[in-house]
Simulated scan of single mutants.
Amino acid sequence: MISELANTIFNQAINDYHQFDDIDHPIVNPYEKDSLSHLFYLKNWIDTAQWHMEDVVRNPDITPVEGLSWKRRIDAQNQVRTDMVEFIDGYFLAQYQQVTPSANATVNTESPAWAIDRLSILALKIYHMQEEADRVTASEAHRAQCKAKLEVLLMQRNDLSKSIDELLADIAAGKKYMKVYKQMKMYNDPSLNPVLYKKA
């Protein structure tokens, strides 16, 4: 199952990252470059780095200049994340290009890779909520609250994993078909963001 592979690799990438816990630590992807496993590992590493960037920028003592620098870095990382999702969708499009959809096939509300993107973020939520549920310096009430949230996140991961596997099975069977739209983020494009093109 694709979801089982993804969840396993996401957990591996998160654990590997936290050996160093350094946003700038170079990634060492253990999987062959053209494999889906390689893409999943890279995807989650990108998400993990961005997760920690989001933590840093919320430091109440951060200076405005430093905060703006981190905000721009987060924007750039988010574009990398979006590009990675679209690349994974390209992998699935190629995998199922020989499938002829049935006459009554439907398109899903989101592509497989965007669902996998949510699964990657869920892996991060689960990892960090587990940390909070186990944090000995926190109050008993805090740990209990985080444990309850963790149970919900684990249930959500099970449901989403099942949905992803069902979606891919339906695409393979021709019951659904992929239709991928590029995100076309306008704020990053100097020709589309009026603040940027009016400066030019």
Score class of each variant (00 low, 15 high):
Asn15Lys: 13
Gln12Met: 08
Asp47Asn: 15
Val28His: 14
Asp47Arg: 07
Tyr31Asn: 03
Asp34Ile: 02
Leu36Gln: 04
Met53Gly: 09
Ile23Pro: 09
Met53Asn: 12
Asp47Ala: 12
Asp16Cys: 04
Leu5Thr: 15
Asn7Cys: 14
Tyr41Val: 02
Asn29Gly: 04
Leu36Lys: 03
Val28Gln: 15
Ala49Lys: 14
Phe40Gln: 05
Thr8Tyr: 09
Trp45Tyr: 15
Asp22Pro: 03
Val28Pro: 02
Asp21Phe: 09
Ser3Trp: 06
Asp22Arg: 01
Asp22Tyr: 03
Phe10Pro: 01
Tyr41Lys: 01
Ser3Pro: 06
Leu39Phe: 00
Gln12Val: 05
Phe40Asp: 03
Ala6Arg: 02
Lys33Asn: 11
Ser37Met: 06
Thr48Tyr: 04
Ile2Trp: 08
His52Glu: 13
Phe40Pro: 03
Phe10Glu: 09
Leu42Cys: 00
Asn44Ile: 11
Tyr41Thr: 04
Gln12Thr: 12
Asn7Trp: 10
Leu36Trp: 02
Glu54Asp: 07
Tyr17Gly: 04
Leu39Tyr: 01
Asn44Asp: 13
Ala6Tyr: 11
Trp45Ala: 09
Asp24Gln: 08
Tyr41Phe: 15
Asp21Thr: 14
Leu42Lys: 12
Asn44Leu: 13
Ile46Met: 07
Trp51Asp: 09
Asp21Met: 04
Tyr41Gln: 05
Leu36Cys: 04
Asn15Leu: 10
Asp22Cys: 03
Glu32Leu: 00
Tyr41Asp: 01
Ser37Trp: 03
Gln50Asn: 14
Asn15His: 11
Ala6Pro: 06
Ala49Trp: 00
Ile2Ala: 07
Thr48Gln: 12
Pro26His: 06
Asp34Ser: 05
Ile46Asn: 10
Pro26Lys: 03
Ile46Ala: 05
Asn44Ala: 07
Asp24Glu: 12
Ile46Arg: 07
Leu5Phe: 01
Val28Met: 10
Asp22Val: 02
Asp21Arg: 13
Lys33Glu: 12
Leu5Trp: 03
Ile46Val: 11
Asp16Lys: 07
Pro30Leu: 02
Asp21Gln: 11
Met53Lys: 11
Ser37Leu: 01
Thr48Asn: 14
Trp45Asp: 14
Trp45Ser: 12
Glu4Gly: 09
Pro30Gln: 06
Tyr17Gln: 10
Trp51Cys: 07
Leu5Gly: 04
Lys33Gly: 00
His25Glu: 11
Pro30Asn: 06
His52Gly: 07
Ala13Cys: 09
Leu39Glu: 04
His18Asn: 13
Lys43Cys: 06
Trp45Ile: 08
Phe40Ile: 10
Ala49Val: 15
Trp45Asn: 12
Ser35Lys: 00
Lys33Asp: 10
Ile23Lys: 13
Gln19Val: 09
Asn29Ser: 01
Pro30Ala: 05
Asp16Gly: 07
Asp22Ser: 08
His18Gln: 09
Asn7Gly: 01
Phe20Lys: 14
Ile27Glu: 13
Ile14Pro: 05
Val28Leu: 11
Met53Leu: 15
Ile46Cys: 02
His18Thr: 08
Ala6Thr: 05
Asn15Ile: 06
Pro26Thr: 08
Gln19His: 09
Thr8Ile: 11
Asn44Met: 05
Ile46Asp: 02
His52Thr: 08
Tyr17Trp: 08
Tyr41Glu: 06
His38Tyr: 15
Gln19Leu: 12
Ile23Asp: 04
